[in-house]
Nucleic acid binder design. Sequence first.
DNA 1: CTGTTAGCGCCTTCAT
DNA 2: ATGAAGGCGCTAACAG
Lengths: 337, 337
Amino acid sequence: MGSSTIRDVAKRAGVGLGTVSRVLNGSPMVSPATRQRVMQVIAELNFIPNPSARRLSLGKTLTIAVIVPFFTRPAMIERLRGIEHSLVESEYDLIIYNVETVQRRDECLHELPRGERADGVMVVSLSPRDADIPQLLCASAPVVLIDANHPSLTALSRVIVDDVQGGCMATQHLIELGHERIGYVSDWLENPFNFTSSRDRYKGYYQAMQNAGLEINPQYHGQSDHSRSEARRLAAEMLALPERPTAIFAASDTQAMGVLEAARSMRLRVPEDLSVIGYDDIEIAEYLGLTTIRQLLYESGQRGVELLLRALGESSLEPVFEVMPTELVVRKTTAAR
Amino acid sequence: MGSSTIRDVAKRAGVGLGTVSRVLNGSPMVSPATRQRVMQVIAELNFIPNPSARRLSLGKTLTIAVIVPFFTRPAMIERLRGIEHSLVESEYDLIIYNVETVQRRDECLHELPRGERADGVMVVSLSPRDADIPQLLCASAPVVLIDANHPSLTALSRVIVDDVQGGCMATQHLIELGHERIGYVSDWLENPFNFTSSRDRYKGYYQAMQNAGLEINPQYHGQSDHSRSEARRLAAEMLALPERPTAIFAASDTQAMGVLEAARSMRLRVPEDLSVIGYDDIEIAEYLGLTTIRQLLYESGQRGVELLLRALGESSLEPVFEVMPTELVVRKTTAAR
DNA sequence: CTGTTAGCGCCTTCAT
DNA sequence: ATGAAGGCGCTAACAG
């Protein structure tokens, strides 16, 4: 039972192991008759080639690594879903490297592109810092960035979303509704992981406010860890201000939920007393009737895989830089004031 | 650049490769001086031993496989989170085999326990059918079942939750609140994946109803695919009945959300006009104020890893069978009628 | 303590 | 078209 080898098959079929290997790999250089017989034996023995041996011999790992921070967050899951679905039919195994500490982040970013653990690497939502550039550029495995970027990485394929524009769009929506005191609730703009989305969305917020000639009140920006409860706390503080904002833009739908909670606990009606807009359009957003900025999470993962597989095929391919569209989805948490 | 080998290190350090291997594996049979020197060179060359070669030589894959259906569902994610967190410090890679078709299910259940892809296997929420038993019993890799079971598998460690009891508890809660017309909205009780949870919860529902001497009206049981929208549809139908139920037990929190939607769209107030109870206590449940049955999702994953690692250590260990506790969490969607 | 050697199972030339 | 042999990089058992 315990795992027969290619040798057993060869012996039993009365052929050399080279032949077995050939039928295994679909080489045309084998007569239909022997192929038949070998396949027969393979079935009888219930033989499956040992992946470790295969990998060593091939000099390929036949696996794709995806480096993703906090993989259980809804937006990450959605990207992962796109990745998984696009990869399941391929010959590649998928290993998810979940990053929840900077140390782990550095380990992954350092080791994985070397290509000894994976033939290709996808980096999700972790923008490299300057120090990471060298490893990434001399990587022996193709690397594609999803929702991550760096000016020096024009050599890598990247699928990004314009968060500045998204933030701008969100804020503008509120402005068009007549809001002037607009808050922004986010996670830390500067953070050890170098997450850039909240920072970029803030830039968009800032731009939109300026364009509209509105005052940017620092008290209307709260930042803390990324969580519903922290967002709730920040929103509650902001809403307790003498002149509270009439609208809040949250850096993610999860955080928007925190804002909604704060409003609820302070007996503020949404959207009558407070407009709330989120970001991402995760599944729950629709249920909640949350107005938000939709980004193509699933599709970004899908696209990333496409690009990676393409790079794995013909390595001398031009890297592509794609900006995925972003869309305002108006639901029931925003209204004119 | 391109991956130096143990041989390069040996040469550069002026030692044999055996020695390098020894320091790599922390063997004590190396003098401090040479160890120092070798480590030095390893650092200089930025050397990392090739995992594929290591695995082949060791005869171990150094990876754990987890077979899980529809991995993006909140309850699955929560279990995976427990698994991932418990495994990240270990020497094992984690590969998630997402199952969304019966075919894939069979492939995974057939191949993975052979041990050529993984040293250990965790099966989540997929109860084996009779046909799977042989493979599982003669598996060369230890297998642990989480939220899955089969009477013939006493040889495997299993971490389960008593869904019959949970379903009973949920229904009883509604009964105690004075409800008599109690609906059950679920996914298919009989299904190709052999998911048992909704079936077992139904059994609990049935028991509780009978114990209370309440009529079990087939019209009060709706089944369809597992999704919020389908649950919504089922609930809407049920609530359109001349004698509509005054309370609905949903087989999962996700489905409970569908029920809430149905109620909302029919202008039924929850809990005044309709009580709703879910199952799982996923994160969103708290936000929604959903009354539900909590099961220890994260912990089940954690515990599964513990058991698997233990089995990987000393293989001749008694399998354990653990029933995780279940708990009624009363929030705001259930009330006396 | 340390260098050398023999595999691990498979793929891939190279002859035949 | 097929069999034989060498090697992928590493570990472990063996001499020294």
